[in-house]
């Protein structure tokens, strides 16, 4: 690495973009993480925007919210679909469980940023502590999602009556008791793709934790890896904020 005093003054006749310096003042690894996250943001945007396209191409439910029933004829009101909470069978608590999941993911983002702060101070013990909390938050979120998927797939006790008189329960890629089959397909694809990101994030967080415990970053002299994986983890949280709004609230 060049001496910072040298890199701030480029050679005469050369621009700051001609090489040898870092014009964006960020390390190569961090910069590439930012650009990867930008491309990942495009992928998630494409999924969510396609959801918006297909949803606006379907008829919306126009009746009173209290009288809402599941039907293949119109797009469901999301809060009527996601109203179950574990251990409270039969209780109607719209969006409460999803709200809890959102809170868990935001909290794990907070513990991650505290790990990054500890890394700046070379405080190995604090990094270990906050990384463990972050990993715990990620695993809790994934467990919640596993429960939600199970509930969505199995369905409600009443199921939904089709026009030909058959009763269907739950949802898969072909049938969907909650509304048009597209709704279930988007649920599986969007939350599944996000869940896979969380899963990869937990693995990366564990790797960082392992390297912290074994002293790799102390020997390296900096904890930048915590920062880079932290960027990824915050991005996963950010995507969930958008999924929460556009899939569950709107």
């Amino acid at each position: 690495m060049a001496n910072p005093a040298q890199v701030t003054v480029p050679a005469p006749g050369r621009s700051v973009w001609d090489g040898g310096v870092s014009p964006m003042n960020a390390s190569y690894g961090k910069l590439m993480m930012w650009f990867f996250l930008l491309s990942d943001a495009f992928t998630f945007s494409a999924l969510l925007i396609t959801y918006g396209l297909v949803r606006s191409a379907h008829p919306a439910y126009t009746g009173k919210v209290e009288d809402f029933v599941f039907s293949q004829q119109y797009w469901p009101i999301p809060e009527k679909v996601f109203d179950a909470v574990p251990f409270f069978h039969g209780l109607e608590a719209p969006l409460v469980f999803v709200g809890l999941m959102t809170f868990i993911l935001i909290m794990s983002s907070v513990t991650m940023v505290l790990a990054v702060e500890a890394g700046h101070r070379m405080d190995r013990k604090a990094v270990e502590k906050w990384m463990l909390w972050t990993i715990l938050g990620g695993i809790t979120f994934l467990s919640c999602q596993a429960w939600e998927w199970t509930h969505f797939i199995i369905g409600t006790e009443e199921g939904s009556l089709l026009q030909d008189g058959t009763r269907i329960f739950g949802a898969n890629l072909r049938i969907n008791q909650y509304g048009p089959p597209d709704f279930a397909a988007f649920f599986f694809f969007i939350t599944g793709f996000h869940g896979f990101h969380v899963f990869s994030g937990v693995l990366l967080n564990f790797l960082v934790y392992y390297n912290t415990v074994t002293g790799v970053y102390d020997r390296r002299g900096h904890y930048e890896m915590v920062e880079k994986v932290g960027l990824y983890w915050h991005f996963v949280d950010l995507v969930w904020v958008f999924v929460f709004t556009f899939f569950y609230l709107v």
Partner: peptide, 8 residues
């Protein structure tokens, strides 16, 4: 190596 830990 002996790492200097800064205060929070």
């Amino acid at each position: 190596p002996q790492v200097k830990v800064l205060p929070p």
